[in-house]
């Protein structure tokens, strides 16, 4: 369903169009809300955001994709709520930005690998996901990531949004966004590497 058809359908109150956007956006909206305000208020924010989407859709100016626009609504509502709850924004905080991989353990003082990456038995994306156990290990590692890292990684690598859009939605500086993304990826790479070493032993 292309975006114009989708918007027309939504404006007309077409059930198939609603089913499509909910399937595509609901999970993402929760990610964004959770990243900004935490899981406690996330569902409420997402509900409010859907109402706002329905109400504002006739005035949607198409200056960005529908998805980005919807996520910006979520982000704005979450931030407003955050101020009302007098909380400080938890984004890009110390825990998130902390180096996940202690590089001292990975590298010799001269910058060479201490323990080089192993040889992967599952060495294509298809093979990685075909192993049930490995897939579970990846999902567990994903869940264990700090909130903001997980959100950036999810929006970028799983949902395919542009980095600029993501930083905009989450109000991250470009450089912080990139650091968060890279750390999240490194953690997942490490998880997969460890899993594959374990299989060989």
């Amino acid at each position: 369903m292309d975006e114009e058809t989708l918007i027309t359908g939504l404006l007309a109150g077409d059930e198939a169009a609603f089913r499509h956007v909910v399937g595509e956006y609901h999970g993402l909206m929760r990610h964004v809300a959770r990243a900004i305000i935490g899981s406690e208020f996330a569902d409420e924010i997402v509900q409010d955001a859907w109402v706002a989407v329905i109400q504002s859709l006739p005035r949607f100016e198409r200056r960005c994709s529908l998805k980005t626009w919807v996520l910006q609504i979520v982000s704005n509502l979450a931030k407003t709520r955050l101020r009302r709850e007098r909380r400080s924004i938890a984004m890009g905080d110390a825990a998130d930005l902390e180096l996940l991989v202690a590089t001292g353990q990975l590298f010799q003082p001269d910058g060479h690998w201490l323990e080089p990456p192993g040889n992967w038995h599952h060495d294509t994306p298809e093979l990685l996901l075909a192993s049930e156990q490995l897939r579970a290990a990846i999902e567990t590692a994903l869940t264990a990531l700090p909130e903001m890292q997980r959100t950036v990684l999810t929006l970028r690598d799983i949902e395919g949004l542009e980095m600029e859009e993501i930083c905009n939605i989450l109000e991250l500086s470009e450089s912080n966004g990139r650091v968060l993304l890279h750390r999240a990826r490194l953690r997942l790479w490490q998880t997969i590497d460890q899993f594959q070493r374990g299989e060989v032993e």
């Binding site: 909910v22 399937g23 595509e24 609901h26 999970g27 080089p116 990456p117 992967w120 060495d123 294509t124 994306p125 298809e126 990685l128 996901l129 897939r135 990846i138 999902e139 994903l142 990684l153 690598d157 799983i158 949902e159 395919g160 990826r185 997942l188 790479w189 997969i192 590497d193």
Partner: peptide, 19 residues
């Protein structure tokens, strides 16, 4: 390492799921 990172990132796209 770079090949593995590329594989990791590509694999992540396969995790997309709907509610």
């Amino acid at each position: 390492f770079i090949r593995q990172m590329r594989t990791t990132v590509t694999a992540l796209a396969g995790l997309k799921k709907s509610p």
